[in-house]
């Protein structure tokens, strides 16, 4: 799963720690999501979307292989 988390965070001038604080998760979790090492749970994805004021699909985007599998 690709995501725009680093860009959105940078636009707002938030550090990983600041975003983690807003989400109520560890900074390691934010780091792992940004690096693509971890896909967040659905509740956490909703929370991320809420924090940025966007829809989930504006932040997360499936990899091409994931889309082709679904089709």
């Amino acid at each position: 799963m690709k995501n725009r988390l680093p860009v959105l965070r940078a636009e707002r001038g938030w550090s990983q720690a600041a975003l983690a604080e807003r989400l109520g998760v560890s900074r390691q979790t934010v780091n792992a999501i940004e690096k693509g090492r971890y896909d967040p749970s659905l509740p956490l994805a909703f929370k991320i979307a809420t924090v940025f004021g966007l829809a989930i699909e504006d932040i997360f985007e499936p990899e091409e292989s994931e889309v082709s599998h679904a089709e």
Binding site: V25, Q28, S41
Partner: peptide, 13 residues
């Protein structure tokens, strides 16, 4: 060090 929550990711680790 810094505070770390044992959240869903840390738990999976």
């Amino acid at each position: 060090g810094e505070r770390l929550l044992v959240d869903e990711y840390v738990r999976s680790v």
